[in-house]
């Protein structure tokens, strides 16, 4: 039996705190192999898009520099990306419950490198969810907006998904185990309704006054702003505010948690 030995005296510390592509690849594969995640975050939002815009009306009324179908397309892409980012975030807490975080702390992996890799995975998965809905929109042909708006809206949507990755981490730490996604799934659907992702809100209505305070409202307005060319100040405050709240919440729960791994 041959056994490789490594001289103790010449041990090195890994570059970049252990950040590496092999982990990114395995983490992405894990997410893609989870059928439930893929169905709920990619197939479902795309299905919703078809269900809404596939009806008899043509959804061709102009909205900003595009049409209604484009408006709905961006909304659905945001919904899917937010869901999958939340799922990625919640996995951090699940892994902690499984003792995997403790196992990782017995390796040279730096916590910052770990969080960075997890955030990257959430972003790549979010980009994939956005791409799926957008591809469906292109194939169907009802959504209409200039090419630059397609790209700009998708990019802005992707940035907005980080809010929900943080929310996922936060909720994952509060709700133990795999129940987190069972709360996040319906919870995000409800917030999407409230925030005008599934249906445009009537400005000034009773519901609207509640909606502008909820976490989906701000990011939805921001994500659609390349199309609508409208971005009220309170939407921007909403988006920034909830990002801060969720990041702070996630950081707070994580710091309590690592006191005793």
């Amino acid at each position: 039996m041959t056994t490789t030995t490594i001289d103790h005296a010449v041990r090195r510390v890994p570059a970049a705190g252990g950040f590496n592509r092999r982990v990114l690849r395995i983490e992405l594969l894990r997410m893609l192999r989870n059928r439930r995640t893929v169905v709920f975050t990619m197939v479902f939002p795309a299905g919703l898009y078809f269900a809404i815009t596939g009806s008899d009306t043509t959804w061709d009324a102009p909205v900003g520099s595009g049409n209604e179908a484009a408006y709905i397309l961006i909304s659905m892409a945001l919904y899917g990306a937010a869901l999958i980012a939340a799922a990625c975030g919640a996995m951090v807490a699940t892994e902690r419950a499984l003792g995997w975080s403790r196992q990782l702390r017995l390796t040279p992996l730096n916590p910052v490198a770990y969080v960075t890799m997890k955030a990257l995975v959430a972003l790549v998965m979010g980009a994939l969810a956005i791409a799926v809905v957008n591809a469906c929109g292109v194939l169907q042909g009802r959504a209409d907006m200039p090419g630059s708006v397609w790209i700009e809206a998708a990019g802005v949507t992707l940035c907005c998904t980080l809010t929900f990755a943080a929310l996922g981490v936060f909720i994952g730490y509060i709700v133990p185990g795999e129940n987190a996604m069972q709360l996040l799934g319906p919870g995000l659907a409800l917030l999407s309704f409230l925030g005008g992702v599934f249906w445009p809100l009537t400005e000034g209505s009773g519901l609207w006054h509640v909606a502008v305070l909820t976490p989906m409202y701000g990011v939805a307005e921001v994500a659609r702003s390349p199309l609508t060319h409208e971005l009220p100040w309170y939407a921007l405050v909403n988006a920034a505010g909830w990002l801060a709240v969720f990041v702070a919440g996630a950081a707070w729960r994580m710091s309590i948690d690592t006191a005793r791994v």
Partner: peptide, 19 residues
Amino acid sequence: IARGLVSAVMQTGGLLKDL
């Protein structure tokens, strides 16, 4: 730990079931 000089084996947990 950063140099891989120490390892530990825990009795339970520490594994991802879907890998």
